[in-house]
Structure formats: C-alpha cells, structure tokens
Simulated scan of single mutants.
Amino acid sequence: MPRYRDMHRALPYARDGALAVVELKSDPLIGWAMETHAVNLVDGQTTLESWNPAQRTRLEDIHSYGNNGWSRGFGADGAERVLPDLLAGGVGRDIILGFMVARGHDEDSVERLAAIIEKVM
C-alpha cells in the first residue's frame, strides 16, 4: 500500500522484476497502472490506457514541464496551460498524478502538480 513517495523509491528496485501494489485512496495509482500496463492480480487483466493520442501528448507535455518539479515559473506555467484541456477531456487528477509517478516524479513534485490541478479545476 505505497504512497507516492514509496513508489518513487520502489520503482528503481523493481525495474527488472515484479512489484505488487495495493492502491491507497489518498495516493491513487490508476495512471501509473495505465502507463506501465500493470496486471490486475484479481482478474488477470492488463490495465488499459483511457487516454487518446492527443491526450497522451498533453501528458508528455506536463511530464516535460515537470523537469523542475513544477516549481514556480516555466514548469508550473506550462502545466497550467496544458491541464485544462486534459481535465475537460476526461483525463482526471488521479490519472495525471499516477502517470507522473510512473515517469519517476517524486512525491514533493507530484504534490506541487496536485496543487496546480486544484488551482485550474
């Protein structure tokens, strides 16, 4: 039952192996599961992406803007420009944050992004 910080620490160790995760409501990992094509151990199904190609591009843009952890300035401003389109298109907060965890962003960065999401909602 990892929090975002735990995932950031565990992922490098699991690169060539398995990682079993039970999601917490406080730190949803559906976006991580979609991005990594995680297998649901209850039903054996692979977690499918719910975004379209244009939305994936926007997720990649937000990931790129996160190179400074979405701190004030360029990174935060860029994310603020991209997020409304994603959110309006049905890509929710949990998916966005989990995707960023899958891309290696740490808990502090993800929390800053969560605050930006709340601001633009």
Rank of each mutant, 00 (worst) to 15 (best):
Y4T: 08
Y4Q: 09
Y4N: 08
Y4S: 07
Y4C: 04
Y4H: 11
Y4V: 06
R5V: 07
R5L: 10
M7W: 04
H8A: 07
A10W: 11
L11N: 07
P12A: 11
A14C: 10
A14T: 14
R15K: 15
G17F: 05
L24C: 14
L24F: 10
I30G: 04
I30D: 04
G31Y: 01
W32G: 03
A33N: 06
T36G: 01
T36V: 06
H37S: 14
H37T: 11
A38M: 09
V39T: 09
V39W: 02
V39G: 02
V39L: 08
D43W: 08
T46C: 13
T47H: 08
L48H: 02
L48C: 02
E49S: 04
E49K: 05
E49F: 01
S50H: 13
P53D: 06
L59N: 10
L59Q: 10
E60V: 14
E60N: 13
D61T: 13
I62E: 00
S64M: 11
S64C: 12
G69E: 00
G69M: 00
G69H: 00
W70R: 00
S71A: 13
S71I: 03
S71D: 07
R72W: 12
R72H: 14
R72A: 14
G75K: 12
G75R: 12
A76H: 11
D77C: 08
G78I: 06
A79Q: 01
E80F: 03
R81P: 04
R81L: 08
P84D: 13
P84N: 13
P84E: 13
L86H: 04
L87P: 08
A88W: 05
G89L: 03
G90V: 09
G92V: 01
D94Y: 03
I96P: 00
I96H: 00
F99H: 07
M100P: 03
V101P: 00
A102K: 01
R103S: 08
G104S: 14
H105F: 06
D106F: 01
D106N: 09
D108C: 06
V110L: 00
E111R: 11
R112S: 03
A114N: 12
I116P: 00
M121H: 13
